Each structure stands twice: as C-alpha cells, then as structure tokens.
Computed example of a mutant assay.
Amino acid sequence: MDALRVLRADRVDERAAWIDLWSQSPAQEVFTHPAYLEIFRQRSDHDCCCATMSSDAGTVLYPFYLRHLQSEYGLGLPCSEAKDIATPYGYGGPYAWGQADPKELAKAFWGAFDNWTMQENVVSEFIRFSLFEDELLPYPGEVESPLMNVVRSLDLTEEELWGEVRHKVRKNVKRGRNAGIEVIIDGNGNRLGDFLSIYHRTMDRRCADASFYYDTNFFESFCDALAGRYCFVHAMSGDLVVASELVLVSPRNVYSFLGGTDPAHFSNRPNDLLKFEVMLWAKSEGKHNFVLGGGKAADDGIYKYKESFAPNGVRPFRVGKRILNSVDYGRLAAARSKSVDLAYFPAYRAA
C-alpha cells in the first residue's frame, strides 16, 4: 500500500501530480480539480489540498480546504494552531476507483489520513458528498441527509424523457417553443455579460447571500481555468438572452450550476425549455445524468421546480461530519459564544 500524500495546489509539482491523478479518475468531476477549489475558496488562507493514496487495492482522490482558524477568528482562540477541513461548494468527498478491496483501501486511507490530521491539529471535518455514492470511499464519520436533490437520468430515449417530466414542464416547454424561444450552447463564455446581467438580477430577486454575487473577474477566471469542463446555455428571444445557465460538464454527468431568467419573459417559460434542451444536448454528448440539485430548504419552491424534471430521480444530499479532536473542538465552541448553536456543524462556526 502506497503512503498517503497530501498535495497542495500552490506547489507546482504537487499541483501537477493532483491534475495527473484527476485525469486518471473515471469521474473527472469539476469539483475535484485544483482550479475549482482555488476559484471557490473564500479566503486566501484556506489551503487547497488533496489527499491521495494509490495501490493494488485502489486509488483515492479527496480534495478539501484546510482552513486556519487562528487567522480567521483572531488571536483570542484557545488553540492557536487549530485547523479544520471542509469540501468546496458543490459535491465532493473521497473519490475511489480500481477498488480490488474497498474495505482494505478504506481502512488504510482513513487510518493514514487521521494520522495526518492529528499532526496538522485538525479539529473537525465537513464533507458535502457526491450524489453518486458508488464513486466514493466508505466514510468512517457521521453521515446525514439534510435535503433531497434531483438527478435526471439520461439513459432513456427522447420520447421517454419527454414522458417522464411532469405535465406542467411539457406545457411550459411547448409554450417557450411556440413563443419562438431558441436555446444555444455557448462553450466559450462569449455572452458572459448577458449571463451576468440575468444572474445578478436573479440573485437580487431571491435575496441571495452576498457570497453568491460572483463578479466578471470570477467568471473569467473560471472559464480560463476550466475550459472544456463547462458551457453556458442561453435561451434566446431573437437576439436577446432571456434565460441563461452555467452548466458543469464531466465525462458522465452535467450539472445545473448557476443561472437565472429575465423576469420580463417569465410568461414564455424560457427556463423550462432551457433545461429540457440541456437534457437533450447532454444525452447527445453521451452523458448519463443531468444533476439539477436541490433547494435551500426541504420541499421549497426551488426544489419542487427541479423535481418536476425528474420526479423519479430524487436522491438524498448527504453530508459527512467528524470531530477529530474533541477537546479542542469543545474549547473552540466555548470560546466563540456561550449560546452557540450546537446543532450547527462545526459548532464554533455557528453565526
């Protein structure tokens, strides 16, 4: 069994090793590429890391942020060298492939990883898991399913796809087509300005958290760093973009990621047409799943809208939690607030 390696994206040789291993992985998910972690990290002192192990028993690729608590919360912390781990926005976890013996690989990987976290003074770990559980290494910590997500299987004929969406979707797709709406695939971000205008207005309408207001530089960096792993999809009314979406692309799956609709054109339901055309395009590209995601809360309007495209494709969105140093975890939680929300994980990050 090869030794555990924890690669860092800011070290040239380790970054190259990370990308090489990512290129070998069957999933090649955008969420696990070092550039994705760099683009979505919220602070410069969040180290973009990837724990790897490879042997005859299989290979593991586990990207995450190593976050330095002292620099985030100031000099008053009782544990000056404490850190914690979290996966980036989206889906992640310990991807594994070529598993001749999954139990042996899991035992070896988590044993070595936990030794590393002890040396690094890691207090806790939080993972947002991939919806495709068979791609992941078994997890030794607590697993919860706070929400449901929607996955549209594309392993159907076009007629079957049409029949499996809810009636209201079929009605809205017809309305969009009858209104002359056309959908185009933009693989290079040529209409980024149009996308941004719609996206920011959609965030305003939804009273979104400030962290979702990505600017032009953010998207330009995204497009440069992840070329070939995304496309923009635009619903057009003549020369006007009336709905737009950023879609992430992996070998097997595509992901509805960020987007919105011009409210002046709600009546023509361009977003329903856009998503149905994404399904058809992705199927033609040989993809197997279109991941629509979920809502902000259980059974909210956003979730119900997405569910209408795949009523039989509901899957649990799972998160993993581990307290790796219970003493320091308790001291940090106590230092933050006497009324800390213990239901939030990790408790010391509760607002």
Score class of each variant (00 low, 15 high):
282 A>V: 04
292 L>V: 07
266 F>K: 09
39 I>F: 02
137 L>Q: 01
300 D>L: 03
88 P>Y: 05
221 S>G: 14
46 H>W: 15
90 G>R: 08
328 D>K: 13
43 R>G: 07
250 S>Y: 05
291 V>Q: 03
283 K>S: 05
57 A>K: 10
349 R>M: 03
261 T>F: 09
145 S>P: 03
293 G>F: 00
315 R>I: 08
40 F>Y: 07
129 F>T: 07
320 G>N: 05
71 S>K: 15
332 L>H: 06
1 M>N: 03
136 L>N: 10
267 S>K: 15
133 E>F: 01
249 V>T: 07
78 P>M: 14
172 N>F: 11
120 E>W: 13
26 P>S: 14
159 E>P: 06
255 Y>I: 06
262 D>I: 02
102 P>I: 09
233 V>S: 00
205 R>F: 00
347 A>T: 15
135 E>F: 10
184 I>C: 06
266 F>W: 07
339 S>Q: 12
303 Y>K: 04
97 W>N: 12
234 H>M: 06
63 P>K: 02
179 A>G: 02
6 V>M: 08
33 H>F: 10
147 L>C: 10
15 R>M: 02
104 E>N: 09
223 C>F: 06
148 M>T: 03
145 S>T: 11
91 Y>L: 10
17 A>L: 04
16 A>M: 09
262 D>G: 03
5 R>W: 01
207 C>V: 13
42 Q>F: 11
287 K>P: 04
163 G>K: 11
248 L>C: 09
5 R>M: 03
345 F>G: 13
275 K>C: 14
342 L>C: 09
36 Y>V: 01
229 R>T: 00
192 L>E: 10
174 K>Y: 01
60 V>C: 07
286 G>L: 11
90 G>W: 02
9 A>I: 04
329 Y>W: 13
321 K>A: 06
28 Q>V: 08
154 L>Q: 06
31 F>M: 09
349 R>E: 05
176 G>D: 03
285 E>A: 13
15 R>W: 00
110 W>T: 00
185 I>Y: 13
310 A>T: 01
302 I>N: 09
255 Y>R: 00
308 S>R: 09
155 D>S: 14
206 R>I: 07
226 L>D: 05
148 M>H: 12
230 Y>W: 04
345 F>S: 14
323 I>R: 02
326 S>M: 09
101 D>Q: 09
171 K>E: 13
44 S>N: 15
262 D>L: 02
